[in-house]
Structure formats: structure tokens, C-alpha cells
């Protein structure tokens, strides 16, 4: 994906020429606080801008297909349809599968996103699932679209820390298994650092810094990046290591 000089405006301009490139199989983090334009950038790529906003300049090119997952899956899942049927429906439309084949495919996708008890779970409605399960269903729904690029808008922000860890690990392995490219939007640099090779820092609709995650974290150039890093509250190292 290549974004060049993307401008988005409503009554005032909100994105002032954002540029961003994501290579095949690469994971790029988009970091900033609320109002920085990080979610807006993803929505512009998907053509999902909120009412009243439009792209006023720049170009967006995506090689292949893009799919997106969101912070709050409930907004994007149909509350009245069993989750298995929702995923099957997308398989039918995208891959042209029969009713029966699409149902089998949906269960395969549930396996891909590491959902347990799949046959039972597929018959549930969104409100009957936990937050982590819903996010996995949303991910299955995204994978059903056979994307080359997955746009992730704060998908773990609302999750418990142990569930967040599972979803981050899942995204990392899906990326490795399928060669997916990822754009991961978050306000939390520590979360982005878990997953992304490169990071782009956005502030008030402008890119203020971009580079390899390791370099940006070790030697931030822009004062705003430094502020974001300073805001990550530190934890002392755990005796016995991370996996002890």
C-alpha cells in the first residue's frame, strides 16, 4: 500500500498530506493520541470516512485487497445474526462458495483465529461472546475477505491484558503464515512495538516522525514522539524473565 499526500477535510482540514508506504508482508504501526488522524487515515483507505468528511487530495494505492478490524467489534457485527452465519455469508460472496461449503469455510476460519469450541460458538450471537472472542470473530470476518492487507484500528485497546497478548500473538502468526501486510493503529507505543517493524507517528493530521520501531524508540527525534515515549509508564523487569 502506498499513501501519498493524503488530505481529508470536513469543515476544516483534518489530514494535512499524510504519506505512508507498507511493503508486502510488512507490519507498520501508526501511533498518535486521539484526534491525531490515525483512524481517519485507515478509514480513508477503506472508503469508510464518517459522514461529512471527504478526501480532498493525495492518492491511495493498494495492491490486492484490504480488510479492516476495529476496536469495538459489536459495532460491526450484526446483533441479530449468528456469528458463524455472518462469516459464512462473506465467504459466499467473496469466494462464491455454496451455502454448505461456506459454512465449512467459516469453521476453518474460526480455527485460523484460534477459537475453541467452534461448532458451538458459531451458533452464538455477538452479545453472547466475550470481548476476545468477538475480536477473533471480527478477524475471521476480515480473513474471509481474503485480504492482502489488514488494517487494524486499536483492535486490542478494549481487551484485557492477557487477551490482548493472545490477539497480538495471533496477528503476528497470521502475518507470518499468510504473508499479510499489517497497519496497526494504536495510541500505545508499547503495543505497536510488539508487532511492528516500522512506526509512523502522527500528530494533528501530520506525520511528525517515521522509522524503524527500534530506532524511533531508542532515539526519537521529534519532541512529540519523546512525549509519547515518556508517557509509557514503565514496569520493572520481572524476576525469572518473561517466560519463566
Amino acid at each position: 500500500m502506498r499513501i501519498e499526500g493524503l488530505r481529508v477535510a470536513g469543515e476544516t482540514e483534518l489530514l494535512h498530506g499524510v504519506s505512508l508506504a507498507v511493503g508486502a508482508g510488512e507490519a507498520v504501526g501508526l501511533v498518535g493520541e486521539s484526534g491525531s488522524g490515525k483512524s481517519l487515515t485507515l478509514r480513508a483507505v477503506m472508503g469508510l470516512l464518517p459522514r461529512g468528511l471527504r478526501v480532498t487530495g493525495g492518492t491511495v494505492e493498494v495492491d490486492g485487497r484490504a480488510a479492516m478490524i476495529f476496536q469495538d467489534p459489536l459495532t460491526f457485527l450484526d446483533p441479530l445474526v449468528r456469528v458463524g452465519d455472518q462469516v459464512a455469508e462473506v465467504c459466499r460472496v467473496v469466494a462464491g462458495l455454496s451455502r454448505r461449503a461456506s459454512r465449512v469455510r467459516a469453521l476453518e476460519l474460526f480455527a485460523d483465529v484460534r477459537l475453541d469450541d467452534r461448532a458451538v460458538l458459531a451458533r452464538r450471537y455477538p452479545h453472547q461472546l466475550s470481548g476476545g472472542q468477538r475480536q477473533r470473530v471480527l478477524l475471521a470476518l476480515a480473513l474471509a475477505q481474503e485480504p492482502d492487507l489488514l488494517l487494524c484500528d486499536e483492535p486490542t485497546t478494549a481487551l484485557d491484558v492477557t487477551v490482548q497478548r493472545e490477539v497480538l500473538d495471533l496477528l503476528a502468526s497470521l502475518r507470518a503464515e499468510r504473508g499479510l501486510s499489517l497497519v496497526f493503529v494504536s495510541h500505545d507505543l508499547a503495543v505497536v512495538a510488539q508487532l511492528c517493524d516500522r512506526v509512523v507517528v502522527l500528530r494533528d493530521g501530520e506525520v511528525v516522525e517515521a522509522g524503524a520501531t527500534r530506532d524511533v524508540v531508542a532515539r526519537p527525534h521529534h519532541p512529540y514522539t519523546r512525549r509519547l515515549l515518556d508517557a509509557v509508564l514503565p514496569l520493572p523487569a520481572l524476576a525469572g524473565g518473561r517466560d519463566g
Binding site: A190, L229, V232, L238
Partner: peptide, 23 residues
């Protein structure tokens, strides 16, 4: 934070995303 005694506490602490070393 360094020596949790309960296995669940330890799992929680291990799950927290941490930044790589800063200069």
C-alpha cells in the same frame, strides 16, 4: 512487580506489552 507469588499475577505481568530498551 518483580516477584509476584501467584501464577495468575505472573501471567498478568508477563502479558503487559513493554517497550524495547531506550537510549
Amino acid at each position: 512487580f518483580t516477584h509476584p507469588s501467584d501464577p495468575y499475577s505472573r501471567r498478568l505481568l508477563q502479558a503487559v506489552p513493554r517497550l524495547p530498551e531506550r537510549a
